[in-house]
């Protein structure tokens, strides 16, 4: 950590062309955050930041944290969706084919835990506390 901080200060002393470019890109990005409304509201982020002892008067950084969190959630959800879609399609007996396909897009614990395991979160839910009588069955093949 100390190396990092000293490198920070060193970096501030340096002034190379490349750095100017990066600076400009970063400034532009931060400015664009002012116009962007993250799904996670600022108030919520500020609450959690304050709870963790984070102090910063800059709204743009709060937005940056909000966007980073939003990206994380979206990534996890996308991975879970891929898991969900990768499941072999159930045998469709009825003709309500389209409806069945819609029904398949359910965020389940199973898919979520698989998605989260890629992000370093080991989630194990207790299977004997059944979410529903049909837990353990393939959610896609479940009959309503």
């Amino acid at each position: 950590m100390n190396n990092m901080s000293s490198s920070n200060s060193q970096q501030q002393q340096q002034s190379s062309e490349a750095r100017h470019d990066d600076d400009a890109v970063l400034t532009e990005f931060l400015a664009s955050l002012m116009d962007y409304t993250p799904t996670i509201p600022d108030e919520l982020v500020e609450h959690y930041l304050a709870k963790s002892g984070f102090q910063c008067p800059d709204v743009r950084l709060v937005r940056l944290v909000a966007v980073a969190t939003q990206k994380f959630v979206a990534d996890v959800a996308t991975d879970a969706l891929q898991q969900c879609k990768a499941r072999p399609a159930p045998v469709v007996k009825d003709k309500r084919d389209k409806q069945q396909k819609e029904k398949r897009l359910i965020l389940t614990m199973e898919d979520l835990s698989k998605a989260l395991s890629e992000y370093g979160v080991n989630m194990k839910h207790q299977e004997y506390f059944a979410d529903s009588p049909s837990t353990g069955m393939d959610p896609a093949s479940r009959e309503e």
Binding site: L81, E102, L107, H125, D131
Partner: peptide, 19 residues
């Protein structure tokens, strides 16, 4: 809201709570 934007139509209650 994010889950919905990604494409999910339904969610298990426990899964949403966990996420």
């Amino acid at each position: 809201q994010i889950c919905q934007s990604v494409g999910f139509k339904f969610t298990q209650h426990s899964a949403l709570e966990t996420l």
